[in-house]
């Protein structure tokens, strides 16, 4: 069972700046208030492919409550662990930038709860070819794929059995809805929430882009440093 959501958007900023904003988007909640839910960001690897000149980067983000509360409520405590507050999820983000050809492709996927709900977001940033303002705008196509495997018995690559089984025999809520019904509900709930979030993440990108336009990368780094020092004084 799969649900796909696609959107297109054009930023009124040049392509190189937009790719920089992508790396900066979670740099500080003072610079991007829409990133309050991002608790940490780490770089796992980053290298330039000598043959193509492409920059390959993998990062891991820890985000608050990636799983909508409505979904958490639907799931048995054997899966959620019984805790209902402050859920957090690790997100793996991979990106490839090709400056020569003028494109950036990104992919983000959740690492925990992947058996219950896997959300994979793919974005392609390109320089528009059909406008009069070549060089000043950047197109982005976003595709989000929701997939719930709730109730399926999945064997992973290491041969471990993930037991996200529906307790059919008890004749309760889950058996009435059925595994497929639950999967559909999970996917559509998540899809609704993600559509709201896509708007916010775009707003966050725009704030970073405006900062970059006003004060350049050195200005942004300075603001980030100041925000960081203020935080440390408070702590």
């Amino acid at each position: 069972m799969v649900l796909t959501h696609t959107t297109n958007h054009t930023y009124s900023h040049p392509f190189p700046t937009v790719t920089l904003a992508f790396f900066l988007r979670y740099c500080s909640p003072q610079l991007n208030p829409f990133s309050q839910h991002v608790m940490s960001t780490d770089t796992l690897s980053s290298h330039v492919d000598p043959a193509t000149g492409r920059l390959h980067t993998t990062r891991i983000h820890l985000k608050k409550s990636r799983m909508p509360p409505a979904i958490m409520k639907m799931l048995p405590t054997s899966i959620t662990g019984g805790a209902t507050t402050e859920k957090a999820s690790y997100i793996m983000e991979t990106s490839v930038v090709d400056m020569k050809e003028g494109w950036m492709s990104t992919e983000s996927r959740n690492l925990n709860f992947a058996g219950v709900l896997s959300v994979v977001e793919k974005q392609i940033y390109t320089i528009p070819t059909s406008t009069n303002e070549i060089g000043n705008t950047t197109d982005v196509a976003t595709t989000v794929v929701f997939r719930s495997r709730f109730g399926e018995r999945i064997r992973d690559k290491l041969g471990h059995l993930h037991a996200h089984e529906v307790e059919q025999e008890k004749g309760g809520f889950f058996s009435r809805l059925g595994a497929h019904g639950i999967q559909r509900s999970i996917e559509s709930l998540a899809s609704k929430k993600t559509q709201d979030q896509l708007g916010k993440s775009r707003e966050g990108m725009k704030l970073i882009l405006e900062r970059l336009r006003q004060s350049g990368i050195m200005g942004v780094l300075e603001l980030r440093k100041m925000a960081r020092e203020r935080n440390m004084e408070k702590a």
Partner: peptide, 29 residues
């Protein structure tokens, strides 16, 4: 603040992040 998932890596992360962002904007781009 965008921290590292491990507090003990924050200082090293900060130094690398600043370096990467400068390299990316001034050289790679």
């Amino acid at each position: 603040m965008s921290q590292s998932l491990a507090k003990e890596c924050n200082e090293a992360k900060e130094r690398y992040d600043t370096c990467f962002l400068k390299w990316y904007s001034e050289k790679y781009l």
